[in-house]
């Protein structure tokens, strides 16, 4: 167990290192950083000063070393737009995106698991076929357009939900959360649903396949042979089995939820770090872009790690021993 943890943490650090290198190369070397770092009005002397100050005149590996050194100290540069450390700017927006992504995750499970299991129990029925066709639709709908249509229906036509923003927040341990207020939840409903739509189709598919597979197993026959109620068979025997792939895949997809929050937050003018990223790209605020990408990578790594642990907790056949760690 201990050896496994050590190795797993080593892997995670390696991924972070690789990402930092890629992000550095992509953001700092593609295009000319000076153009975006220096005001267009600056004269030649100012330019040279900035270049020297930022170390842009040094060899690339030295620049990267400096970047990495500073990053390790939590310094990813200062936002040009906000005049604050880029990491702080990101962290201020992080809670909004996190609560949106978690809410979307819950939505996709709440929608996907019951429908998927139902379709899996009755694969040839009208209900089953309808659900599966519906899941194709869920995969197909571009989620920014769904967001627009939801705004059109619920905010513009019916006027029962807000069209954007985050709403009221409550401060807990110095962090502003919206999910604790009714107004905040109302603001979160449409974006979270939009974000959840694609993932719930994925959950439907996994649950349907899993249920069909489990249903054909002898242990379900045996369980029925014991005289168990259908509720017990579905809720315990089937669900416990299909939760394993669902948890694994949803864990991996949590990263994608945060990434796609970029689109959804833009649609709903939701002040999370995804919207911040788009704003920063449009304003060429590179330190913030870098801070966003590295923060997101860190979240992916942490989530994947957590999923591995959860996976082990759910599947007794897998123990975090050395042979199971590959």
């Amino acid at each position: 167990m201990f050896a496994y943890l050590i190795r797993r943490i080593g892997q995670s650090l390696l991924i972070l290192f690789a990402m930092s290198l890629l992000v550095f190369l992509a953001v700092y070397t593609l295009g000319n950083p000076v153009d975006s770092l220096v005001s267009p009005d600056a004269d030649q002397a100012d330019r040279a000063a900035v270049i020297r100050q930022l170390g842009l005149d040094r060899p690339i590996w030295e620049q990267y070393g400096l970047f990495l050194w500073n990053a390790l100290h939590g310094d990813l540069g200062t936002s040009f737009v906000y005049g604050l450390p880029a990491v702080d700017v990101i962290l201020m927006r992080l809670p909004a995106t996190l609560e949106l992504a978690v809410m979307a995750l819950l939505f996709s499970l709440a929608i996907g698991i019951p429908l998927g299991v139902l379709a899996g129990l009755r694969p040839n029925s009208l209900v089953g076929r309808t659900i599966m066709s519906g899941s194709i639709l869920g995969f197909s709908l571009p989620n920014f357009w769904i967001g627009l249509m939801l705004i059109l229906v619920f905010a513009v036509q019916l006027r029962i939900l807000p069209s954007g923003g985050r709403g009221e927040t409550v401060s807990v341990f110095g962090v502003a959360w919206a999910f604790l207020t009714l107004d905040g939840l109302k603001h979160m409903l449409l974006p979270a649903f939009t974000l959840a739509l694609y993932k719930s189709s994925l959950v439907v598919r996994i649950c349907e396949a899993g249920t069909r597979d489990v249903m054909s197993q002898d242990y379900i026959r045996f369980a029925r042979g014991k005289g168990l109620s259908p509720a017990r068979i579905v809720c315990v025997h089937i669900l416990k089995n299909i939760l394993i792939p669902v948890v694994t895949i949803m864990g991996m997809e949590f990263g994608a939820l945060i990434a796609f929050a970029v689109v959804v937050e833009s649609v709903f003018a939701y002040p999370g770090m995804g919207k911040l990223l788009i704003d920063s790209i449009n304003r060429l605020d590179r330190p913030v872009i870098v801070a966003y990408l590295l923060t997101t990578t860190l979240i992916f790594v942490i989530v994947n790690f957590a999923v591995d642990l959860m996976y082990a907790a759910l599947d007794p056949r897998i123990r975090l021993s050395d042979e199971g760690a590959t």
Partner: peptide
């Protein structure tokens, strides 16, 4: 098959 008669995750 006794390996499939019992639910592996319970």
């Amino acid at each position: 098959d006794p390996s499939t008669t019992l639910n592996p995750v319970l």
